[in-house]
Structures are given as C-alpha cells and as structure tokens.
Design a protein around this nucleic acid. Structure first.
Length: 217
DNA sequence: GAAACGATTATCT
DNA sequence: GATAATCGTTTCA
C-alpha cells in the first residue's frame, strides 16, 4: 500500500521585520512540509513565550521529528488512530501539540504537514536568550545551561502547559521567529531518545557540541 | 475494570 | 547505574 503523501512545497521564508524591529513569526507555510525538514530548519530559530505574563525567548538547539502514521513511535501512529490525546497533532500546520508525559512533564510539539496527516516536531532543548531570570525562577537551583535542556525542562522554563495545546505559533503568547542560519557542518543527526519502536530512525537533530542539548553531557 | 506503560527528570548508590 | 515520582492513556482480561 502506498503511504499517504505529506505536504512538500518549500515556502520562501524570509526574516521580515515588523515596524518595531522584531522578526516576523514564521508563517504556517513553514510548517506545512515533512516533519524532518521542519525539524532540521528549526535549529537556530527563536521561541518566544509570554505565558504567565513574562517574556522568555530562546534559541532552539535540539528537535525530533515524528513523521506520520507509518512512524510507530509517534502518538499519531496508525495503530492509535485519532484520539482525544493526539487530536491536536492532526490539526493545522504551525499549531502547538502539548501533552503530559510520565504524569508530570509537559512536552511542546509543533504540528507539521497537511491538516489531518498527523506529524509533528518535538522541541527537546533550547538556549535561553531573553528573560532568563524568569526561566531561572521556574527552574530553581539549576545552572543556566540546564534551564531548557530536555523537553520537560524546556516546557517548564517557558511556562508551557496544556493551556497552549492547539495554539497557533505565529502570535502571542507563544510564537516562533526565524533565527540564525545553521551550517550543515554544525548539525548532528541521530536516533530519537526515549522511544522503543522505530528506535533506529535518524530523526533527532541537534547543534553539535552545544551544552544546552540534552543527553550525555 | 485492572494493570502496565510512557517522546522524562531528579536523586540516590 | 538504578529507581521514585505521578497520572493520563493504552492494553489486557
């Protein structure tokens, strides 16, 4: 059987700026492509969160792609179908999918591909840029390079929880702006972390050698 | 219904 | 390296 086609149109994404000098958010078209391409290109992009009324921004340094119904490690794998938990993953590209793992940690994902397809990018780690004092307050006792290291920690430091499930990622209180371009030589690719099925698929992307990346230090 | 598990993290030995 | 924390979802009877 032929797998359903994911969207593949490559949008022209330029870092336009608003009148206030801030980069315009990435448009929905950026996300309406295969999850692995979006995951790679999100490296170096900026997350801005105003959740909780305080502003925190960070540069994405680690992502994972969950590529569609054939991906057995995905919450949107074919054997699950569309359920109450994973429903947001089938929503429009460029919206958030936020879920609770191990009963205590929120994980932030960006929905990719065609609406109804079921793919997303998990944001695993970032480097705090602005509002780091607020991130420290949410992660007391942690050194700065661990504030957003790991998906649960990142969500905590940014104030992300279920209230942001399905939120469009081009507007407050949570949006993504283009960041610095990352050369291919600085990008590492390998298997995803913490999964048992499709454990060898190389769908994790990170900045080589960056101390804010999760995993072994 | 009941039991097991999970896209994790912190802490203990 | 091993394990507790903690709860919604999934799996099994």
């Amino acid at each position: 059987m032929t797998p359903r086609k994911n969207a593949s149109a490559a949008p022209e994404v330029r870092a336009r700026r608003s009148a206030h000098g801030e980069p315009a958010p990435l448009p929905a078209a950026f996300y309406a492509r295969p999850a692995e391409a979006v995951a790679r290109e999100l490296l170096g992009a900026t997350i801005v969160s105003e959740a909780g009324g305080v502003r925190v921004s960070a540069e994405i340094v680690e992502t994972e792609a969950y590529v569609g119904p054939e991906d057995e490690a995905s919450h949107a794998a074919e054997r699950f179908g569309r359920t109450a938990r994973n429903d947001a993953m089938f929503g429009p590209a460029g919206t958030a999918y936020v879920y609770l793992i191990y009963g205590m940690h929120w994980c932030l994902n960006f929905v990719t591909g065609d609406e109804g397809f079921g793919a997303a990018v998990l944001v695993r780690a970032a480097r705090p840029v602005d509002g780091i004092e607020h991130a420290r307050a949410r992660r007391p006792g942690r050194p700065d390079h661990e504030l957003m290291r790991g998906p649960g920690n990142l969500a905590r430091a940014l104030g992300v929880d279920a209230a942001l499930n399905r939120h469009p990622l081009d507007r407050p209180p949570l949006w993504i702006a283009p960041g610095r371009p990352i050369a291919e030589a600085d990008v590492a690719v390998g298997p995803r972390i913490g999964i048992s099925r499709a454990a060898d698929w190389p769908l994790r992307f990170w900045l080589r050698g960056d101390p804010h990346v999760s995993g072994k230090s």
